[in-house]
Design a protein around this nucleic acid. Structure first.
Length: 593
RNA sequence: UGGGGAGUGGCCAAAUUGGUAAGGCACCUGACUCUGGAUCAGGGAAUUGGAGGUUCGAGUCCUCCCUCCCCAGCCA
């Protein structure tokens, strides 16, 4: 039965939620090497006269941190590839190391995957739930002479392992009898030995050029309680042993992981080859693809954790973080993240995707689904001298030009307004066609106005603009057909809502901060202006009851979403992304040329 | 200097397995526009890491070389 991949948005998030409700396409256009392999496998079944196998994939996070955009790539791949083939995708906690894991993380992981729009149905699993079966497989290995209990400590084991260029040496405990191994392993389980005192190792080849095959540890003693199995176990299986067997137990057909696991594939296959899998229908195979790297950020869980723990950001869900929760708080939609993951493709070469590609995806989604509103970030007072004092007009404003069904709203207009400070220049450069002395522009949905004067303080700073309006241009159209080169957003001074607006910039100053130079640390590359707090913003009054999670386009300024910190009367917005800005490109070119 | 993986416009990424280098992002130009947004139309940009070789024909096959990434946790 095909899994349901329709997005389900647990958080009410205004326009963003609407965007999320767009169904995941059943089949995406692209055909990467993984999809090709699966198609070939299926075709092979048919050609051989076998029943067409059910494609089963899985997303197997370790609950030791929050999910990030790199995980989203893997999540989208696994879930959509299964759905495209009428198969299913499991969500499995790869929780074999209790010392690093916590339920906090399993909760955030399930919430994030769901928020992204994927549904694992009843197929939610924990490697921990397989501990008993895994243990039995280990005994089987022992009985077959393929595993032994080793008494070497960690340091000794490192010495025996050899190096990249030298083979390792056999452990002195490698030739223990089956009986002794079994006895010792059972006593390991029974808790007779201290943590780290002994290990169970696969008996493979200490001279293997692939270090993963040099008698790898498959069980270690760890006297710590597990977030799921409690104190039932004091021995825990290692990844290489647990993962392939978990895949086999679940009937996973295609086990997709990232490139750093390529050397582990030999061990993945070795374990499956040396254990009796006849009770299980499928023989899983591992395929690797390149992990995602994004410019100006990092994807390493370790680094992300340090950013949180050392207080460089406010938490895992800080809007500057590449975490799913951070991006959600920043205003990214599930649909935009999915579109991004589809857009970058799946391949095996190392990559560094430009942030602009991600931004394109949010803008593309938000543009179509987000209501427009007017908000002035850096207010400059404007007085319309020929507009009657005390008069208030309610003008019609379009909610979303991309979506007529979004309707219109009323915005108050009066004699005193605020406009964006950067929309006025006393001595405008060429190609600046906003407001300047003597120049006429349109106030959106309002009137044509002409700047007639500038008021300055003693320091020479502009504090106020004096203008006149043309009453014949109500609504923003000139009956005589005359044109104006710019349309400015504005808010009525007396009606405007004050708000805190958090403007985010790149977290790091380097395109690839993970590439740390000699003598530096990654934290040397933190961008000191990654967060700009703006407390002077003035927003249109329709935003009074804007609720956390709702997203708006502040016309001409960008996309903004209401932060959970926000309260009526004390609104807080996060800038999701700016609008594409041709004027900024003009300025940049001028600076470069 | 062992093993493995990878090199295609600025960034991603295709190329029906030998048939004459898609597409997206970014950038530029024009049209349109009550968002310098969106939309539409167009454009520049690749001797496919390099050198040889096989072939009528090579991004795809062969040889050699260069560069980058991963592996020496009782992490995943």
């Amino acid at each position: 039965m095909p899994i349901d991949t329709r997005p389900k948005s647990p958080t009410p998030s205004g326009a963003g939620a609407d965007a999320a409700d767009t169904a995941v396409p059943a089949a995406s256009g692209g055909s990467d090497f993984i999809r090709q392999i699966i198609a070939a496998d299926l075709a092979g079944d048919v050609a051989a006269g076998r029943p067409r196998r059910t494609i089963v994939t899985r997303f197997p996070p370790e609950p030791n941190g929050y999910l990030h955009i790199g995980h989203a790539k893997a999540i989208c791949l696994n879930f959509t590839v299964a759905a495209e083939n009428g198969g299913r995708c499991h969500l499995r906690m790869d929780d074999t190391n209790p010392s690093k894991e916590d339920v906090e993380y399993v909760d955030s992981i399930t919430a994030d995957v769901r928020w992204l729009g994927f549904d694992w149905g009843p197929h939610f699993y924990h490697a921990a739930d397989y501990f008993e079966r895994l243990y039995l497989f280990a005994e089987e290995l022992i009985c077959k002479g393929n595993a032994f209990v080793c008494d070497l400590n960690a340091e000794q084991m490192r010495e025996y392992r050899g190096t990249l260029t030298e083979p390792g040496r056999h452990s002195p405990w490698r030739e223990r009898s089956t009986d002794e191994n079994l006895d010792l392993f059972r006593r390991m389980r029974a808790g007779e030995f201290a943590g780290g005192a002994r290990t169970l190792r696969a008996r493979i080849d200490m001279a293997a050029p692939n270090i993963a095959m040099r008698d790898p540890v498959i069980y270690r003693i760890q006297h710590s309680s597990h977030h799921r199995s409690g104190d039932k176990w004091c021995i825990y299986p290692m990844y290489d042993f647990a993962h392939c067997l978990s895949d086999a137990i679940e009937g996973v057909t295609h086990s997709l992981c990232t490139l750093e696991f390529v050397p582990n594939r030999a061990l993945y296959d070795w374990v499956l080859d040396h254990v009796d899998l006849s009770a299980h229908s499928s023989r899983p195979r591992q395929f690797e693809f390149a992990r995602l790297n994004l410019t100006y950020t990092v994807m390493s869980k370790r680094t992300l954790r340090l950013l949180v723990e050392e207080g460089h950001v406010r938490g895992w869900d800080d809007p500057r973080m590449p975490t799913i929760s951070g991006m959600r708080r920043r205003g990214y939609t599930p649909a935009s993240i999915r579109a991004f993951c589809e857009g970058i493709g799946i391949a095996r070469s190392d990559n560094l995707v430009q942030f602009a590609q991600l931004e394109f995806c949010v803008r593309d989604d938000l543009n179509r689904h987000t209501p427009r509103v007017m908000g002035v970030l850096r207010p400059l007072k404007m007085v319309i001298e020929n507009y009657p004092d005390g008069r208030v007009e309610y003008l019609d404003a379009v909610n979303n030009p991309e979506d007529p069904s979004a309707g219109t709203r009323k915005v108050p207009f009066s004699r005193e307004l605020y406009i964006e400070r950067e929309d006025f220049q006393e001595d405008p450069p060429k190609k600046f066609f906003r407001l300047a002395p003597g120049r006429e522009v349109r106030l959106r949905y309002g009137y044509f106005i002409t700047c007639t004067g500038v008021v300055k303080n003693e320091a020479g700073d502009i504090t106020e603009l004096r203008c006149t309006y043309d009453p014949a241009t109500t609504g923003g159209n000139a009956p005589d057909g005359r044109k104006v080169k710019a349309t400015l957003h504005w808010v009525a001074a007396a009606h405007a809502l004050p708000a805190e607006v958090r403007l985010y910039n790149q977290l790091f100053t380097r395109e690839n901060p993970a590439r740390v130079e000699e003598g530096a640390t990654i934290f040397d590359y933190l961008n000191p202006t990654s967060l700009e707090l703006n407390t002077e913003a003035r927003l249109e009054e329709s935003l009074t009851s804007a609720a956390p999670g709702q997203t708006f386009q502040f016309e001409r300024m960008g996309y903004f979403t209401v932060d959970p910190d926000s309260r009526t009367g004390a609104l807080v917005f996060n800038r999701t992304a700016t609008l594409k800005d041709e004027w900024a490109n003009v300025l940049k070119r001028g600076a470069e040329g």
